[in-house]
Design a protein around this nucleic acid. Sequence first.
DNA 1: GGTTTACGTTAACTCAGGTTATGTCGGCGC
DNA 2: GCGCCGACATAACCTGAGTTAACGTAAACC
Lengths: 248, 248
Amino acid sequence: MSNRDSCIVKHFRHYHPLSDGDRQLLGALEKSPLEVKAGDSLWEERDPAQDFFTLSQGWAFSYRQLEDGARQILEVYLPGDVIGLREYAFHQRLTGVQMIEDGTICRFPHARLTDIFQQSTTLTSILFAMASRQQVLLTERLVNLSRRSARQKLAHFIMEMYERLAKTAGRQEDHSIRLPLSQEMLADVLGLSPVHVSRTFSALDEEGLLHRNRHRLLLPDPAALADAGQFDERYLADSVFAANDAVG
Amino acid sequence: MSNRDSCIVKHFRHYHPLSDGDRQLLGALEKSPLEVKAGDSLWEERDPAQDFFTLSQGWAFSYRQLEDGARQILEVYLPGDVIGLREYAFHQRLTGVQMIEDGTICRFPHARLTDIFQQSTTLTSILFAMASRQQVLLTERLVNLSRRSARQKLAHFIMEMYERLAKTAGRQEDHSIRLPLSQEMLADVLGLSPVHVSRTFSALDEEGLLHRNRHRLLLPDPAALADAGQFDERYLADSVFAANDAVG
DNA sequence: GGTTTACGTTAACTCAGGTTATGTCGGCGC
DNA sequence: GCGCCGACATAACCTGAGTTAACGTAAACC
């Protein structure tokens, strides 16, 4: 509860109240926070997989590099997200992770997850809820990639970021968000070419659904943008309470 | 150990040896096996989410229905797979699930998962490994959908099924598999039109990479097909041992 | 045994988005 | 101020896959 709480503890508390024992257990498992720079790689594909990270500050993304040089960005991580759950059952990393901006991360050793399983049902439930949530985010991204037009893809992704940021960082009065992704990164998220991302941005801008100023995006009418992207926020419905119910 | 073991117990044992206590815990949680018909729906989007199923016999798939009528198939489940982990942290189903063939399923109440967390670290680890594996499968499908040509998509999906079937049902001498999906379903898996699935099948057939006879597929040279689909089986690397390491 | 129905095939045409190439703008070192 | 560099914009052209529609085929039903 004090401000000596680590970033891991803070994040887990965001999901569910923790007992002192839970807090100590989490604290004991983590190594000291690590400062990282924009562009730094947390790991690359095929690296040995032996820990998780929590992202305390800054943005990151995970990606797959294809044989033909294309890169697919799989997930964008915001402060508070846990990174690396995907590879729990694997010895090797299957995806790389890089920082988008300078930030702070906390290491969380893989092998000792069992300590948590043994000692705290609450923490176990939270971890399970996090894994569930990530699978749901990935599912939505998959649908977005396979079945929607460029216009819908972009509108949908921006709405997702808008809502996720609202939950962690609060909402701006002017309905604006800061999205520190280059158009090349957006293309790699959305499965488009950078050129077409630019075209699509211009189209949305002309329609008045979206205005850009460098990395700041203004959404004059979020509901209209959501509509343009077939965005249905149910998949972001906070996962805390369902997990709580199971615990309670 | 006896043939009185339920299908859930069988499946979990496939991941990791279970103590008698673990077996009893699993057995106590499940309801009786349920016979289901091809086309039966296990649930639909927006249904309340309160249990998992294990698939004992038959194939199933999960899907999302889009506003414009398109359907995206997210995952194909084979006998032994656990269905519904995705919605652990949600109150509502976000995807539907239907049977592809007649089969048998076992219900596994959602709310009581906590009993497992409290009583068995082994079972908890297995469940976590299953969730990790599903996220990895989904990741690969996402890459397949967003970054590969129709030819690569089809080749890749068939290779995935070939390898997954090899693990559960063993390998045929003639390198053939039974794939009970209509071309319409394949289209909905791969984000293609049924027409183009047909064209692509014909092209692979002419190249000698694949021969079809109704639902039976013959792969004269699996390595060549894998190559055509940029298929790298690392993402199917059996997840049991990594989880075991954590337990041990 | 003939009709129905579901599933697959083939061909002609269309179009969203990729590709390539060139242009613009803001920041930065000198 | 000048030139460089990275990020974005715009335009012309190309292509893979969607769409539509007509036709085959095979199990299924009376």
